[in-house]
Design a protein around this nucleic acid. Structure first.
Lengths: 363, 363
DNA sequence: GCGCATCTTGAGAGCGTTCTCAAGACTTGT
DNA sequence: ACAAGTCTTGAGAACGCTCTCAAGATGCGC
């Protein structure tokens, strides 16, 4: 029944157009030296037959595979996914990447790799051998994993490091974490807040430090102290609960918290609710990431929007444009923006006065 | 500087183990007739050299490409993604698929295809030619797109249709929409609700009809009327707002709404809030999909959990297991579950009494 | 108008794997 | 112990494409 339709190959096109395989190949790849007349004829044959080159054959013969491989942290991704929290990094990478890849005739694949596994090399190595991608995009925390970057450098595969500005092989891209944190803090200060705490991410992530830096800088610039206003979490919900509790226990005069992830900030929101603190009336909250889950919370969270998709898109372009290795020095920075929703407002009226004139009175 | 490490090929392994290429190939693919002793020797060489077969070469030679292609609706996916609502279908497909694929040595790729485009054939055809996948997974509404299913059948590529139970080529898989809707409705009836409305999805999706069927069946079984209690949306937020308003305008005695998507139900939640209706005290809400965004709304939504990941996983297994074509008759049904959160409760005390004894009095 | 450089086209090899087919080693039955 | 099978191994072609290199066609300077 089901007639097996033979695949259209370059040979079919060559015959149809009455030229050699090589000429068709040149036309397909935009080769430089083909007479316009012949080019058009070949193009017509290609269209008529619906010829599309086989990715596998292209890879076999030429040097390119037309595949960009995106690497994500398996542990975090699967945890978020199983908990039905969404896997925003994967979303953003995949979709940001797919669109840019397809513009250049490339394809994107996603690979999940364990950070803590001793098999990183084997696991990633297998993917590289099987796929032989033309470029690899690393996300935190892999971006700064020596084993991984070395492996890629050794195999001479161009790669991008997102969320890393360290020198070394690979194209470094960052998302303006320092200035984003500074922006968020400055905005709160502008609203009148003086006691602004931060729940930071784990120190293995460079961006955790950058965000702390930005927050401190804004506080310093405004002449505000930040001692004791820092708690560290692991980006997850539970750690956010712990951190928010510790912060609110310690500082009754706190009027704002910046959380270094949506989950942690959402946890802070719940802690506030439990303690009868209205957000944003009594406590302002700013989150990092701006994943889907902060849009429908009550109130919706003001958040720093991580331009992951755009960053990945830039990474793809760099990987495709640069050959085996270009000048790997300049850090590419894509700016993050602040999306204001309803979790931020001026602090309660007595609060600023308190901080200046009186002793704190709230228990 | 960067020494280009030559890729380990099957030839290197053959030399190392002192056997022919063919023998290595047999060992790699679990071929049947190799002496255990030789097999071990070859395995040792493979491990030592870290050999992994090239996907491209495998495809070139053999009949398989070890690629499963998942097709999603571009329009909806990109709209949800740009609106930062999350792309749960892609998430679930990708991750559910990746895990199952990797267990069988396969890889999954995602392709976005326009439903309404006249170029469906060209677009999909190009992807098929380039990738030559061993199997394709179709999601609604593509699952029931004739052009697409015909194209796949013609090319003799095994494919799965998720959310379709129609006869014809391709493996049909459904997620128990009828029984899920019945379950949700029955649960509300059990809580004491008698006026239960439904906001359905667009009729192009078969599953929209199935969900209506389940709702009606439950209502019928309880002897409850359902006339005028149905509104149709397009799964999007705005359509949910419209539908919820219409429903609430029309029926002052309504105590529960089932929304056929998270976005529409979230919209209903907002409409209720605007009208001073407390959820779940005055109005109970049950959603379909259970994507991340319904977990942190206030209150969190009770939702029918669509087992997309599991369904995709089953689809992958079927595609890999069955050869070119198996018996395409039996519909595979993966059951959906109801996740109870805080948007469901018994109706207000006077409401059931009203419905029976008095005329509705609420404006 | 002739020799040289450049542009245009094609022929053939090679990429890494699996397929088909054939040859040798080993069983088994009588 | 010998024929007839089965098991094990290998040799060579093939997959669809791009690479390298060579040959023919065309343009340029004097």
């Amino acid at each position: 029944m089901a007639r097996v339709r033979k695949t259209v190959t370059i040979r079919d096109v060559a015959e149809d157009a009455g030229v050699s395989l090589q000429t068709v190949s040149r036309v397909v790849n935009g080769g430089p030296n083909v007479r316009p007349q012949l080019r058009d004829k070949v193009r017509a044959s290609i269209d008529r037959l619906g010829y599309v080159p086989s990715l596998a054959a292209q890879r076999m013969s030429g040097s390119r595979s037309y595949i960009i491989l995106a690497i994500n942290d398996r542990e975090r991704t699967l945890a978020d996914w199983r908990a039905r929290l969404g896997t925003d990094w994967v979303d953003q990478m995949l979709l940001g990447g797919i669109l840019t890849c397809s513009q250049h005739g490339y394809r994107m694949m996603v690979e999940l790799v364990d950070t803590h596994s001793d098999h990183v090399e084997r696991e990633l190595g297998a993917a590289l051998s099987a796929l032989q991608p033309d470029g690899v995009i690393l996300t935190p925390p892999h971006s700064e994993n020596r084993l991984i970057t070395q492996l890629l450098a050794e195999r001479n595969i161009p790669f991008a490091r997102i969320g890393s500005n360290a020198p070394g092989p690979g194209i470094p891209l960052t998302m303006g974490d320092e200035s984003a944190a500074h922006l968020a803090t400055a905005r709160l200060i502008e609203l009148g807040h003086r006691r602004i705490a931060m729940i930071a991410g784990p120190p293995q992530y460079s961006l955790s430090g950058w965000r702390i830096d930005g927050w401190k800088r804004a506080m310093d610039e405004a002449g505000l102290p930040h001692d004791g206003l820092l708690e560290v979490g692991d980006f997850g919900y539970a750690s956010g609960t712990r951190a928010a509790r510790a912060l609110l226990d310690r500082h009754a005069d706190l009027t704002a918290i910046i959380g270094s992830s949506d989950q942690m900030t959402l946890a802070a929101l719940e802690v506030a609710r439990d303690r009868g603190l209205a957000v944003p009336h009594d406590l302002s909250l700013i989150s990092f990431d701006n994943t889907p889950i902060v849009r429908f919370s009550q109130p919706p969270l003001t958040a720093v929007d991580q331009p992951i998709a755009e960053t990945v898109s830039r990474a793809v372009e760099q990987l495709i444009a640069r050959g085996p290795d270009g000048d790997d020095d300049a850090v590419i920075e894509v700016a993050a923006g602040l999306v204001e929703r309803s979790s931020t407002a001026p602090p309660p009226v007595e609060a600023p006065a308190q901080a200046h004139a009186h002793a704190p009175s709230r228990a």
